[in-house]
Structures are given as C-alpha cells and as structure tokens.
C-alpha cells in the first residue's frame, strides 16, 4: 500500500521534535572533555546505581505486573473497571505527586511507614529501596497496560482449548498464557526499564538525592545543571546513550521471538 504523501509532513515534525533536542544536547557538548566527565566517580556511581535500581524495579514489575495484567484481562471480579483505572494512575499523576504519595504512606509519619518501623524496624524513605519503589510505581503501567491489551486482543480461545485438554488453571497460565505472551512481555519490559531509568520526580521526593544511595543519573544531571553545565550535559548524554542501547539492543531480539 502506498502511504498518502500528506502523512509525511506531520510525521517529519514529530521526528524533529524527538530528535532535535538530542542534537541540541550534542551541540552543547565539549567532546574533548567528554571521556573525563562521564568517567568521574559521581557519574560512574550514579550510572551503576541507575542500572541496578532500574533492573530491580523491572524485575518487580515482572513478578507482580504479569499476574495483574492477566487478572485485569481475564478476571471476573466486581470492581475490575475501577482497578483498571487505578493502574493508569501513575501515568496521569505528575511523578512528584506520586513521590509525595509514597512519602506520606511509607514515610516516618505515614501509617505504612510507622507499621514497617514498629514491626520490622525498617525505614524506607531516602534509601536505595525507596528509589526502586518509586521507579516501580511509575513504570508498572507501561508493562501492565501493554500486556492487558495483548491478552484481550489474543482472546481466551487458546486457554479454553487447553482447559478442554485437561490443563488446570495454573498449567494453562504457565504453558499457554505466558508463552503466548512472551513477545509482549519482552517489549513491555524494555519500556518499563527505560521508564525506570529516566525516573526523576518520584525518586527525588521519596528517596532524596544522596550520592551513592539514591542519586541516580537523572538526579545527578539535574544537580549538575545548576553548577557545572558541561558535566550535566555529559551525564545527560550518558543517559541518552544508555536508553538507546537498551531500546535498540533488546527490542529486535524480543520481536524475533514472535511467530
């Protein structure tokens, strides 16, 4: 099919809007000092922390998000529509507000926080765990919404056939639902990881900005922007490179898995 020529104009505008800011970032970069700036101890620490926390958050999303998507798509519970809307909440909520909400739940004066401290002696705010929680909070919808859509599109026919072949519900989930969903899970995880990597607002309000424990790359870039612009730009480029790496390296492999 030939595309209508008219589509190319707005499409080009969209590409410009996505790509030109990165060009702007590159144009502001001092290429000679770049290796030195991105290998500074603060940048390396932040990079390592970002990768670790984002990977953990992605893992958390996988463990709880896949079952949630299946429940949302296949469940017959009352109040499921409300639950579906709730999953969208982190997408529409400004991340800073999400961070505040987490703080008032799990902070020292929040009821969840008091409970945790009294029962287990754990304080979450301003720890690396808080970074992971903030990232999980904002990134979860990216996995769940994609998976729920894929499950609905696929329909429950394969699952019904599996049941008539004698598969009990958990066997159906393990041997039919999940394998059929793998391509969607893969692409969902890439999006989730990328979102967690870029997370800023919820992290800074709930976890703070402490080098080594909660200062991820976006937080470092923000901090440096106020004092050392060259370093900030270098760190930002590092973030862009990391995000592009994840998307381009992992995504094609994920898509290959589909029939």
């Amino acid at each position: 099919m030939r595309l209508p020529a008219l589509l190319f104009v707005p499409a080009a505008v969209a590409v410009a809007l996505l790509v030109l800011p990165v060009v702007g970032l590159l144009s502001r970069t001092d290429l000679r000092r770049l290796p030195e700036l991105v290998s500074s101890p603060a940048a390396v620490d932040a990079l390592w922390l970002s990768v670790r926390t984002s990977a953990t958050a992605t893992g958390l999303c996988l463990v709880v998000g896949v079952p949630l998507a299946v429940v949302l798509a296949r469940g017959r519970l009352p109040g499921l529509r409300l639950l579906r809307a709730t999953v969208l909440l982190p997408l529409v909520l400004p991340p800073v507000v999400g961070g505040l909400a987490l703080l008032y739940l799990l902070g020292r004066n929040g009821f969840g926080g008091r409970l945790l401290e009294a029962a287990l002696g754990i304080r979450l705010p301003f720890t690396t765990v808080a970074v992971v929680l903030a990232q999980t909070f904002v990134a979860m919808p990216f996995l769940v919404i994609g998976l729920e859509g894929a499950l609905r599109t696929a329909g429950a026919r394969y699952e019904a056939v599996a049941a008539t072949l004698g598969a009990r519900p958990f066997v159906v989930f393990r041997r039919v639902t999940v394998p059929l969903l793998l391509p969607s899970i893969g692409s969902g995880l890439v999006l989730t990881f990328a979102r967690a990597l870029g997370e800023f607002g919820a992290t800074i309000t709930f976890a703070g900005n402490f080098p080594g424990t909660t200062q991820t790359l976006p937080l470092l870039a923000y901090q440096l922007a106020q004092s050392d612009v060259d370093s900030s730009v270098a760190v930002s480029l590092l973030l862009v490179a990391l995000a592009l790496l994840v998307i381009t390296l992992v995504r094609p492999r994920v898509i290959e898995g589909s029939p």
Partner: peptide
C-alpha cells in the same frame, strides 16, 4: 465440574494449535 476435569474435548472450526509448540 471445571472444563479441565470434565473429559469433554473440543475441536473448533479454527484448529487453534498452540503456536509456541
């Protein structure tokens, strides 16, 4: 009795072979 314990097999118009197997 749930579908998986009924001993009732189903062959539909669409063969619905599991694509991953």
């Amino acid at each position: 009795v749930p579908p998986h314990r009924r001993g009732v097999g189903l062959l539909a118009q669409d063969p619905l072979l599991f694509p991953h197997l």
